[in-house]
């Protein structure tokens, strides 16, 4: 792996909550700390997985990278340039480089656009390709890249004439028309049937290898993350609590939260229908408006000690490339 293409430094996104009259008078602010200080790098040509339960801030992180949200604090450095705050004309250039595949292929496409129009629109917006014929050539090439072959057969179709898998291919093709260097994929297969899920991931991986792309793959599903990604970061309540190589995270998880997540995953193995599986975690995820003191995982942790309530652990390297934020990591 070469130079990092993207550097995230101490990124924060706090959303303000409505305050009560006393809070206003006292000058107090109430925040939902969706993303609360995360730092990571994504290397050129790698697939980086961001994993966590709903509400952990993974989608907000994706939106911050897409510049759909303004960060509260911190820095985003893309290809050596600070892109944290961009003006409108620079933003357009940035977005040509960083594209996104959304979760719901049924909602992310205009039902009145044919596949060809869906793919051509970004070209028109970014003034790529001078004539219609030129643009059509690019559209055709992208459709071939996502294996919708022959492209002619799909170009005239409206979204309702495509299956879920085909829609997600068109959505991927839409990101490819602008030849980006990075793609943010937010749960791209969670709404797709199991039989085709593997096909879509396989296609995305092939495209990534062929074109040398970098992916940020946002998901709640550890089993696809293991198959699809090179490195994984696990998020909990707006913080990264563990990060490392995909295999390491799953086979040698050190943080109790990661271990609980892994224990909870269902596996297609026989003989478990009569046993009750114990998951080493307590209760449910607290609200991001009321983050526990010290280690934010301590109220749910089975191994919490007094230190965990007071002192917030920082992300430290326990093995080369394997970072964990826990006072008592299991090795």
């Amino acid at each position: 792996m070469s130079e990092p293409i993207l550097k995230i430094e101490n990124l924060h996104k706090w959303f303000p909550l409505r305050r009560t009259i006393t809070q206003i008078l006292k000058g107090e602010h109430v925040w939902v700390k969706a993303v609360d200080g995360i730092t990571f790098n994504i290397n050129q040509g790698e697939i980086f997985g961001l994993v966590g339960e709903s509400g952990c801030g993974k989608t907000t992180t994706g939106k911050l990278l897409m510049k759909l949200l303004e960060p509260t604090d911190g820095k985003i450095i893309f290809k050596g340039k600070d892109v944290t705050h961009l003006e409108a004309n620079k933003l357009k250039e940035y977005r040509r480089n960083v594209q996104m595949v959304f979760q719901d292929p049924y909602a992310s496409m205009n039902p009145r656009f044919r596949a060809q129009d869906v793919l051509e629109e970004p070209l028109i917006i970014h003034q790529v390709g001078e004539t219609r014929a030129e643009r059509e050539k690019i559209v055709r090439r992208s459709l071939e890249e996502v294996r919708l072959i022959p492209p002619e057969e799909f170009m005239g179709r409206f979204p309702h004439m495509l299956s879920g898998g085909q829609r997600q291919r068109v959505a991927t093709a839409r990101t490819l028309v602008l030849s980006p260097s990075m793609i943010v994929a937010d749960e791209p297969v969670s709404m797709i049937d199991l039989s085709t899920r593997a096909e879509i991931l396989h296609m995305m991986k092939t495209v990534q290898r062929e074109l040398g792309l970098t992916y940020l793959y946002i998901t709640h599903d550890l089993s696809t993350a293991r198959y699809f990604t090179d490195r994984i970061a696990v998020m909990y309540l707006g913080k990264i609590i563990e990060m490392g190589g995909a295999d390491e995270i799953i086979d040698e998880a050190a943080h109790p939260y990661t271990r609980a997540l892994i224990a909870a995953v269902c596996e297609p193995i026989s003989g478990k229908s009569n046993t009750i599986k114990e998951i080493p975690i307590k209760g449910e995820i607290p609200s991001a408006a009321n983050i526990p003191s010290g280690c934010r995982f301590h109220p749910r942790c089975l191994y919490a000690k007094p230190q965990c309530q007071e002192e917030e652990p920082i992300l430290i390297e326990i093995e080369p490339g394997h970072m964990v934020a826990c006072h008592y990591p299991s090795v």
Binding site: T196, E199, R226, I250
Partner: peptide, 15 residues
């Protein structure tokens, strides 16, 4: 086509 967590596979098959 069902991914398994504790098994690293190079290629998942699909239908």
């Amino acid at each position: 086509a069902t991914p398994r967590l504790h098994e690293k596979v190079e290629e998942l098959s699909f239908i």
